[in-house]
Amino acid sequence: MVFLFAIEMKDRIHQHFIINKPFGFISQFVNNKNRKKKLLGELYEFPEGTMSIGRLDAKSEGLLLLTTDGKLSDTICSSKVEKEYYVQVDGEITQKALEDLCKGVEIGFDGKRYVTKSCLTVVLKEAPHFEERSKKIRDERHGKTTWISITINEGKFRQVRKMTAAVGFPTLRLVRVRIGAIYLQGLKPGQVVPVSELNYN
């Protein structure tokens, strides 16, 4: 019986999904803290065993991959695969702040101090054209903002938000736009696309 079960698991055809996670949703299917948060299952009828590959917090938006394949999830979450974010920060970011982000900054993580790994950070020449968020961002009448791109190979809890705050430019809006070779482009908020495989290389 155990042997037959092992064969069935080995031959199982896994399912994968690419979604544009909207603002206000958490990257899970069960709310363990009994809080009124929107769950991924409200967007689509996912098969049993589906898990998110990494997470985006409730305030963050954009590209989220889901799979029933735990090994694939571990691979994509590893430092081998880049994750790119478009980040709107409060203020007109300075060259020094950009350089500090690139070199690595000290943030708090799990009750300890942690220095982020070097990354690629650049100012976007034009503001990206995302659909208006359900909870509006303050406009520039209340001060300038800057859109930057941050590409990292790690994923500590709320890392990008903590990084921009550490250099004096808090995050106002955060959208993940790329995981490896998979891009957000063309997906509307809340849209779920089933795919036969996740071509992240």
Rank of each mutant, 00 (worst) to 15 (best):
T50S: 10
K59L: 09
K83H: 03
L63K: 02
K136A: 11
K136G: 00
V160A: 09
K144P: 04
T145K: 09
K135G: 04
L65Q: 02
G186H: 06
K136F: 07
E82G: 01
K136I: 10
L174C: 03
Q88T: 02
R173H: 06
P189V: 00
K80V: 02
K112T: 10
A127T: 09
S79P: 09
H129P: 00
T164C: 08
I107M: 04
V115W: 13
T121E: 10
L98P: 12
T67G: 09
A127C: 08
I93V: 13
G111I: 14
L98Y: 15
K144I: 05
M163C: 12
K80P: 01
S78N: 11
E140R: 07
C119A: 15
E132C: 04
L101H: 04
R158W: 11
V122C: 09
L172A: 06
E48Y: 10
V177I: 15
G54A: 02
I53R: 07
L174M: 04
C77W: 05
T164H: 07
K188Y: 14
T121C: 15
S52T: 15
E140D: 08
R158M: 13
G155W: 13
T116R: 11
G91E: 14
G186V: 07
L174R: 01
I107V: 13
D100G: 01
F169S: 04
I76W: 00
G91W: 05
R113C: 06
V87Q: 00
G91T: 15
V177S: 07
D69A: 11
T67H: 08
T164G: 04
G62C: 02
L72Q: 11
K144W: 00
K103N: 11
L63T: 07
T67D: 07
G186I: 05
T50L: 07
I107F: 06
K125Y: 09
V177A: 07
E131Y: 00
K103R: 12
P189Y: 00
T121K: 08
G111M: 14
S118C: 06
R138L: 05
K80T: 06
G155R: 09
K117W: 00
G49Q: 11
R55V: 05
E154I: 03
T116F: 13
A97Q: 02
R113A: 13
G62F: 03
S60I: 02
L65K: 01
D57T: 07
F169W: 11
P170G: 13
D69G: 11
E84T: 14
F169E: 06
G111Y: 15
S79C: 08
L174K: 00
D110H: 06
M51R: 05
W147E: 05
E132N: 12
L56T: 02
A127R: 14
I152Q: 00
V89K: 01
L64D: 00
F157N: 15
E106Q: 13
E140H: 01
I107T: 06
D57A: 05
G180M: 09
D139C: 02
G180H: 08
K188R: 14
L120I: 12
I148S: 10
L174S: 02
I179C: 02
G186C: 08
L64F: 01
L63P: 05
E132Y: 05
E126T: 14
A165N: 13
G108A: 13
D100K: 12
V167E: 08
G49H: 12
K71L: 12
R158E: 14
